[in-house]
Amino acid sequence: MAKIKLVCFDLDDTLIREIHSVMLPCILNGKEKEHSLIQEQEEKGVIDYISADYLRAELLLGLEESKIAKSFLEIAKPLKNIKSVVDALHNQTIKCIVITVGPKQVAKVVCDIWGFDGYYGSDYDVVQGVFNGKIINYIRAEQKVACLQDFCANNNIKPEECIAVGDGSTDIPIFKYCGQSIAINSSPEVKRCAKYVVDTNDLTDILKYII
């Protein structure tokens, strides 16, 4: 078995639960009710998740980007011991990154708070520190793999030296690309695609499969 050099984490329902990465700035912008209506349409199958995210992006119009970092820990509901896991992996010279279909602006805050080595996410347009309601570049499921490949190329890491940790259908392509995978608090469909399965509120429960 190849030595693990990188653990790639999904964000929504993997590191944070209930309050998703695009929902959080909607709440900060006073658009929680409007977000709920879009969520309801998505759950009913009226619109797909990509169309829903473009509609959610419009709800961020006028929000100051700096408010995300200031209020993240007041609103987000993270799993326990994220920083402990990142530190434990770093002690084994294993890098940690976050790849999400959500806003990269939120992924950056996550990276800064818990000490991840890098982040990728959908590029929501910000002009002079303020969201303008548009998405410049949307990260779909397949593009998560391209993000991982970019980080690996810059850090001389092979696919078999990576572990992917995620919960949703958008993580399945990256599960297939990496040497190993851990489904955390996920659906039966995603569990079938992973090498390891964990249901927990404490992220340290994944360490036994990595180090």
Rank of each mutant, 00 (worst) to 15 (best):
I113G: 06
S21W: 00
K3Y: 05
N81W: 02
A146D: 15
H35Y: 15
K134L: 11
G118E: 12
C8S: 13
L207C: 02
I113W: 00
G133H: 01
N156S: 13
T14R: 09
P188G: 13
E43I: 08
F9D: 00
A88S: 15
S186V: 08
E32N: 08
E42P: 02
S71L: 14
L73F: 05
N155R: 03
Y54T: 04
I94L: 08
Q39C: 06
S66K: 15
P159N: 04
A2N: 10
G118R: 09
E161G: 08
N201R: 07
A88P: 05
W114E: 00
E42L: 13
G118V: 08
V198Y: 02
V7F: 04
V46P: 01
C96V: 07
D10M: 09
S21N: 00
D53E: 12
D10I: 08
D171T: 04
I135L: 07
V106G: 05
L28E: 01
L11T: 03
R192V: 08
D13E: 15
C8H: 04
F9A: 02
V86P: 00
L6M: 01
I136L: 15
D112A: 09
K44G: 06
R140Y: 01
D167S: 03
I182M: 05
H20P: 01
N155S: 02
E74F: 10
L11Q: 00
E189C: 06
I97D: 00
K67V: 09
Y209M: 10
K191C: 13
V86T: 05
D171F: 02
Y124G: 07
H20K: 09
G115C: 10
I113Y: 03
S51M: 12
G133K: 02
Y54K: 14
K70L: 11
D53F: 13
I182K: 03
C26M: 12
I163F: 01
D167H: 01
P78E: 14
N201M: 10
K176G: 10
L89R: 11
S186Q: 02
R56S: 12
I157E: 03
S122I: 11
C8T: 13
N154S: 14
D123E: 14
A69Y: 09
T204P: 01
I94F: 10
V22E: 01
V98W: 05
K104G: 13
G129H: 06
I174C: 07
D150L: 12
D125M: 09
S71E: 14
W114T: 07
Q143A: 07
K191R: 15
E43Y: 12
E34D: 12
D150R: 13
V126R: 08
A52F: 03
K104C: 12
E74T: 12
K77N: 14
